[in-house]
Design a protein around this nucleic acid. Structure first.
Lengths: 204, 204
DNA sequence: TCTTTTGAACTGACTGGTCAGTACAAAAGA
DNA sequence: TCTTTTGTACTGACCAGTCAGTTCAAAAGA
């Protein structure tokens, strides 16, 4: 049985592992380090997870789960108060930024692993990625269907591009320009999404 | 003296290292593996590079150097035949895609390491990144100066976002939708850049 | 022309250290 | 009582970096 106590231990291990692996990478991070940072014994890691690999896979699932829920909630909230689908996309951009601001280490680690081939957790990764991208694709598709967006856009590619735009802008923001506010970053990305980059300076 | 022979050996080591590290990560890749794939002995690696770390740093410089040149050439070529700055940006997007298509492993590895903190090659990485992004920022700034782009855009943030958009879309293209042509991907990204996403389907 | 020397480039066995995973008895919850 | 955690000790595989020795093409010498 999974008791509350055990859950708490796992949570501590996730938190310890995520920062260490984000900083150093999976292979360079030792189980001993993770245990120490979490304040538990090494044996406890193996009591809770079958292996270092399994700990990492479950960490991935845990993290992407949080992101997916956050993206879905953002879109639903806009829909509930009658906003457009483009508003929903905009809300998802903000939700994505907020997620990255809150869990920078997880994002870092996720990006570092996402496109690696020949890794043990390849399948897990593909699965959770699809889950998250699907939420964005859904909103894009709805926007195309009701004419808010051009029916000539390529939904999967555009979803990827949006995802990437937010991801990289946010990571760069954290790493190289952390003094900017989330609103700065959000409005720069909104502008890009809504086509207010192109054209002369008469627009607002 | 650095002879032609030595250069050839180094090139072989770069090529071997780039794919292995892209697939497995830096720490999980052994020097022995790199040597074997390059068809040389382990000692040769240490004859040519002071350490595994140094091999990797020089590999990074080598790779980003290629990208920077390619981005600069793309913009110059458009300028030479009198195109607009937005055309130049578009050409850079294509050049970026072409680079990623040609050196997917390098791109993978670069992305995986870019936002890691506490790494030995942190400084090298920041340096080469700045070199590459500066080329895009330059074109953006020129476009703002001559009124092609709104003066309200945030140049560094937009450059990051563009960079990320191309990066992630291209990696996703390679990894999950490799049947699409480079033109498909290019036109999807162009559309995003030029604001033809938003708005109804009347536009072309 | 033929022989000898030189030195850069390369080789691969070896060393010292690291680390994932195991074992287990005793303690601490619940 | 039953589950979970602790802490220490251990094993066996793996690996970065070293170093004494080899290769060979080209220069020097005869």
């Amino acid at each position: 049985m999974t008791t509350a106590r055990r859950q708490a231990t796992r949570q501590k291990l996730y938190e310890a592992a995520v920062t260490l692996i984000a900083e150093q990478g999976f292979s360079a991070t030792t189980v001993e380090e993770i245990a120490e940072r979490a304040g538990v014994a090494k044996g406890t890691v193996y009591y809770n997870f079958a292996s270092k690999n399994e700990l990492f896979e479950q960490l991935l699932q845990h993290g992407v789960g949080l992101l997916t829920v956050s993206l879905r909630d953002a879109a639903d909230e806009v829909a509930a108060r009658g906003g457009t689908r483009v508003d929903a996309l905009d809300a998802q951009i903000r939700a994505g930024l907020a997620f990255i601001a809150r869990y920078p280490s997880f994002t870092q680690l996720y990006v570092a692993e996402l496109w690696r081939t020949n890794r043990a957790w390849q399948d897990t990764l593909m699965l959770v990625r699809q889950e998250a991208v699907a939420v964005v694709e859904k909103v894009l598709r709805e926007a195309v269907d009701n004419g808010e967006l051009s029916d000539e856009i390529d939904v999967p590619l555009t979803a990827s591009a949006l995802f990437g735009m937010v991801l990289v802008a946010a990571l760069d923001w954290q790493a190289f320009q952390s003094h900017r506010s989330i609103d700065d970053v959000h409005s720069a990305l909104s502008r890009l999404l809504q086509g207010r980059v192109s054209g002369d300076s008469r627009r607002t």
